[in-house]
Amino acid sequence: MTFEPKIVGFLCNWCSYTGADLAGTARIKYAPNIRSIRVMCSGRIEPTFIMKALYEGADGVLIAGCHPGDCHYQEGNYKALRRHRLLKRILHEYGVEPERVRLEWVAASEGERFAKIVDEFTDQIRELGPLGIKDSLAEAMKDDIDPHEADKEESGVANEA
């Protein structure tokens, strides 16, 4: 049986989620491997979201936002771009191929493009194979993976500091 990767998508509400909806309205077919989470802006996406998704079993993460210059909140997508670049730099330190995390610009009118990106990305992740490093990731991320959990444990310490 061929390996079917799990892919988590983080889509901005205004351009990319709308674009993905358009693919639906136009009945354009694409791989069912992606499951998307809607955020208001790609600028909301924290690197920990991506690490969390990989930790929970995703084999790839797709981030999509408005094209440069088109951000509904003026410049959130630029921030997403910067965070993405930084994250890519450290991913390999966790043993994750940087190609597993992809940032794309998808406009509200680009349903077809969204479908094409998903298909392409799915193929790419399928070729890379399962991520399968949950344990090492868990170890490396144990302080960061859920800041709220961490807060609870460390609250006493934080107060002293």
Partner: peptide
């Protein structure tokens, strides 16, 4: 938009309805 929540180094800002948890 929540970009401040994503950027806060001490997790002091939360984006209501789109909180980390």
């Amino acid at each position: 938009c929540g970009t401040c929540a994503a950027g806060c180094p001490s997790n002091a800002i939360s984006a209501k309805h789109f909180e980390d948890r």
